[in-house]
């Protein structure tokens, strides 16, 4: 039971990883293969910041999120923007190149050692709810995930910026006819993508280990969360992430090292049986 609850908490983080990816996938019909490497990079930034300032990682996390927003914005303007409108291949090739660069830059800067973020007393704290002892950190993680999902969905649903994003993802050419600066929308979206992922990275770093080579796996989990939930659905991504987290937890109950394998298999089965993801089930009803 505890393993499954943990799986759900981890899954909420996968949902967060996926939220950013879903944003760029919906808008630009492309994905950033270096997404996971940026997640790991944010975790390193948080680690370095908290060691340097001698404060709790959670204190540094907002600053890292802002930094990663800027990184995403600039990356989009300088690099990814040039690949758009040239077919499916260039964005894939360029972001794969970026992934290789980032992994090796991190290897140079931070060595191949496995690291984690020290949650301090927060790591062991727990509270009793309905006879179950729940860790404060997982609960906080879940609360932050829900808050970010809620905020994203509110921004999308009822602000001018959210409207512009939805219009752009329907058709960027028609959006330009409306006076929407779509390049700026793309860049802001990429910035938000990395900022949200940075927050997820901080929480993940307090519960698990990371090293420079763990990025691609994070990217796959993020993508699986998006597809499991159904492309284009914000809350679907959270549901997809939690399903993925639960699958991995269930797998690791059979054998501790089966977690990711079972997660991948569930993803492939859903892809085969339910190409529209979980949210297509709801729509059908």
């Amino acid at each position: 039971m505890e393993v499954l609850i943990n799986g759900a908490f981890i899954g909420a983080l996968y949902g967060l990883y996926g939220l950013g990816l879903a944003l760029t996938l919906g808008l630009m019909r492309q994905i950033n293969l270096a997404h996971g490497d940026f997640i790991v990079f944010s975790a390193y930034l948080t680690l370095q910041g908290s060691l340097l300032l001698g404060v709790h990682p959670l204190m540094v996390l907002p600053v890292v999120a802002v930094v990663m927003f800027v990184v995403g914005f600039v990356l989009q303007r300088l690099v990814i923007e040039r690949t758009l409108g040239r077919g499916e291949m260039p964005p894939i090739l360029v972001t794969f190149g970026l992934s290789i660069i980032l992994q090796n830059v991190m290897l140079e800067l931070f060595s191949a050692d496995t690291r984690n973020l020290n949650p301090g007393p927060l790591g062991a704290a727990s509270i009793e709810i309905a006879g179950l002892s729940l860790g404060v950190l997982p609960l906080l993680t879940l609360a932050v995930s829900f808050a970010i999902f809620w905020a994203t969905s509110a921004v999308f649903g009822s602000t001018k910026f959210g409207r512009a994003i939805r219009a752009t993802s329907d058709s960027d050419q028609t959006a330009q006819l409306m006076g929407i600066n779509t390049s700026r929308i793309f860049a802001v979206a990429m910035g938000l993508t990395l900022a949200i992922s940075a927050i997820a990275a901080g929480f993940y770093g307090m519960r698990g280990n990371f090293d420079p080579s763990t990025g691609p796996e994070r990217m796959l989990f993020a993508f699986e969360a998006v597809i499991l939930g159904g492309v284009g659905s914000i809350w679907g991504t959270l549901a997809g992430g939690i399903l993925l987290g639960l699958s991995q937890a269930a797998g690791s109950l059979i054998n501790p090292s089966y977690g990711p394998l079972v997660g991948h298999l569930v993803f492939l089965v859903v892809l085969l049986a339910l190409p529209g993801g979980l949210m297509s089930l709801r729509r059908r009803q």
Binding site: R163, A164, R166, M178, G179
Partner: peptide, 9 residues
């Protein structure tokens, strides 16, 4: 919302 997006600028 379609109408409002026309007023984007």
């Amino acid at each position: 919302e379609n109408l409002m997006i026309g007023a984007h600028c």
